[in-house]
Computed example of a mutant assay.
Amino acid sequence: MKRILILNGSPRKNGKTASLIKAFTEGAETSGNEVRNLYISEMDIKGCIACEACSQNGGNCIQKDDMIQVNEAVEWAEVIVFASPMYWGIITGQLKIVIDRLYAECNKLGWKGFNKETALIMTARGDYYQQSLDFYSIFTDMMKWKNWGTVLGAGKEKEAYAIGASIN
């Protein structure tokens, strides 16, 4: 059993990304995993201000906002799923801000101690995912995280379910 955190970057609660998240969650739970979902669009999370305070004070960001909740969930999780529709070839700004702010968490846990596994769920009207895949690949390679897979495109609930079910 794994603890899975879904960071939902979609601004739509009942859109295509939500449908894939639901299928993924069902698959993950049938395999005995515990799943939590954070709906980022309802949270007050400011962008990183590059002050580097977190690199000098044990990983504590000086900004006091809802990122505290995200960090607690990230510490709990073994697997982090990034879920987002594609905006201009990449994840939503809401989710990108969270990823940027994970820098403080890396400083808190140590880069080697911030050992997670991951998956990516994305939807788009088109099928140009290369920029998103490049971003995700660079991030996960830098973090040295195990990738359970990607689901790219609306209507791929079976794929999302299968990836969720494969996590053990």
Rank of each mutant, 00 (worst) to 15 (best):
I167E: 00
L120M: 06
S10Q: 06
N33G: 04
K64T: 01
V81L: 06
I6E: 06
L120N: 01
A119P: 02
K108D: 12
Y87S: 09
E52K: 12
M1T: 08
A50G: 10
T30G: 02
V70F: 04
P85C: 13
A165N: 15
I99R: 03
C48R: 09
A23Y: 03
A18E: 13
D65W: 06
N60D: 11
N71A: 12
G89I: 04
A154N: 07
P85T: 03
D100V: 09
A50W: 12
C48P: 02
W111G: 11
D44S: 15
T150L: 09
W76S: 05
A124E: 12
M67K: 02
G47Q: 05
G9L: 07
M142R: 14
S84F: 06
V81F: 08
I21Y: 02
A18W: 03
M142Y: 15
A154T: 11
Q94G: 09
N60Y: 12
L120D: 04
A162F: 11
M122D: 02
A53K: 11
N71I: 10
M122R: 01
M122L: 13
A83Y: 07
D66C: 05
W76Y: 03
W148N: 13
I99P: 09
G9S: 12
A53V: 13
N107V: 06
E26Y: 07
E105D: 10
E42L: 09
A23T: 05
N37I: 15
G59C: 12
N8G: 05
G32L: 10
G113N: 06
G93A: 10
C54D: 12
N147L: 07
E78Y: 00
C48W: 02
S84K: 05
S55Y: 02
M143G: 01
A50E: 06
K64D: 12
G47V: 11
Q69N: 14
S19C: 07
K116Q: 02
